[in-house]
Design a protein around this nucleic acid. Structure first.
Lengths: 264, 264
DNA sequence: GTGTTCTATTTTACATCGTAAAGGAACCGG
DNA sequence: CCGGTTCCTTTACGATGTAAAATAGAACAC
């Protein structure tokens, strides 16, 4: 966590920020004493409630439309109230990412079958993209940088170790599979969004038709690029990766420098 | 192109937009008559100059910091002048995407070797990510929806046809390779950005250290996740895909429904 | 010449954004 | 009752994207 404040935009915002008084940095403080009780109705603000509502809003109205003020309105409080629980909008979005990630199944469904666990995980990731299309760009774009995401990765890597993979192979396949999954999902989401857009505007439809005529090859291939074939592509690619993973679990296939795992 | 205006944010902005008077929609009008001549110095505004400067600015200061006002300042004009050439910031970004895409090599370096052409293309794409890290997210996130990008795809698919791939395989591998490339590149860029951030802040550094202790598996794997190993991962994954591509060029390996190409 | 029209740009204005800073209001242990 | 802590609101500032109108110069009509 920690207050990072993204990038300072123009490097000359206002003041040098001298730790104002130490507001709220840690995300879930409510548990240290008693949860909350003020304002009888649903007013009880907590970091979790804010985060959940943020996700709900993003799902409902898109990432672009999401703002602290709108979130405040949805929560029944002023926008600035959020800043008691999160140091910035950015940090809140990190928390949303964390919440999504932690829903993924890290354990294999059948204990020994770690390839299957990887597969399940990949499918879970993809399911996330489908369930939260608007929030998914966050996952693909932001670095995993919170405790929960660390825990997720640690669990995953622990599983890989039990499967006998050395660290290098683990790293490699983690990168490969996760890159592949986000790549496919982003592609897919972009395609869906675009299909939406075109369908909702006659002029864009006409334009698409014209493009189809001007570029015949594009036209004939693009029927295979439609949403209905996404599953096919995803499974094909994923199985390709998993096969390779199964094929060469221990050995390192490239020069390498003896940085092996400590366990057999 | 066409004025799309993104999504209307809240669905209740201001007025219903009744085609104000028909300002500028088509991107490059300067060529129809004479380029321009007003304002002796470097003032000559054109769609191309705006787009190029936009890319330069994004490269230099990041996507977040990019705004029409700053672009105007860089060009020596008011922000609104841009709107004569592009209907929206969104459309301008589309043009930037197009400019980047059209730099990729679609032709194979040795005429017959189409696998090599795919490889070159993938490496070119990755090089783009390296050369324009700040602009790259645009490529991965936005749909290819301009004439230039259509042309690019048409050229690519034409090449695939010459290589003997049917439309289904073409579509499949296009999606696979492009998804893979953007996924890896995004991952890579996020990693680099994060390494930057951590290196520039002692408290984040301490935090990272603590995480390393709390999650031992993460720590030992993550040395293999460092930037120095990106090339390795990319090549490994790409060759995996290309091998599969070479292995099964024509046949469709799944049930399929006879929706084949009309051309031999 | 004097309009008038077209093209390119500036000016002005508005709603919205993230968030710093300060000011309550409710609770606390004394 | 009092000072402190905790949580939330108010107010304010400097951005943002862009609609709308004003404006300046070039090109054409007469």
């Amino acid at each position: 966590m920690a207050a990072v404040s993204k990038r300072k935009r123009t490097a000359s915002k206002t003041a040098p920020r001298t730790t104002p008084r130490e507001p709220a940095v840690r995300a879930s403080r409510a548990s240290t004493k008693r949860p909350a009780k003020r304002s009888s109705a649903g007013g009880g603000l907590t970091a979790e409630r804010i985060r959940d509502e943020a996700l709900r809003l993003i799902d409902a109205e898109g990432l672009e439309a999401f703002s602290t003020r709108r979130l405040g309105a949805a929560l029944g409080c002023e926008a600035m109230a959020i800043y008691w629980y999160y140091p910035s909008k950015d940090a809140l979005l990190d928390a949303v990412v964390e919440a999504l990630i932690s829903r993924l199944p890290v354990e294999p469904s059948t204990p020994g079958d770690w390839i299957d666990a990887f597969r399940k995980l990949a499918h879970g990731y993809r399911r996330l993209a489908h369930r939260h299309p608007n929030a998914f760009a966050l996952l693909a774009t932001r670095r995993f940088a919170t405790e929960g995401t660390y825990r997720f990765l640690d669990g995953l890597f622990e599983m890989a170790r039990h499967a006998g993979l050395d660290d290098r192979q683990t790293a490699r396949f983690y990168r490969l599979v996760s890159s592949f999954c986000s790549g496919v999902a982003l592609n897919e989401l972009a395609g869906l969004r675009d299909a939406d857009r075109v369908a909702s505007s006659p002029e864009l439809e006409a334009e698409a038709l014209a493009a189809r005529e001007a570029f015949p090859r594009l036209a004939s291939v693009s029927s295979w690029l439609e949403p209905s074939h996404f599953d096919d592509v995803f499974d094909f690619g994923l199985e390709l990766l998993l096969e390779a993973l199964q094929r060469a679990p221990h050995a390192s296939g490239v020069p390498a420098g003896r940085g092996r795992a400590k366990r057999a």
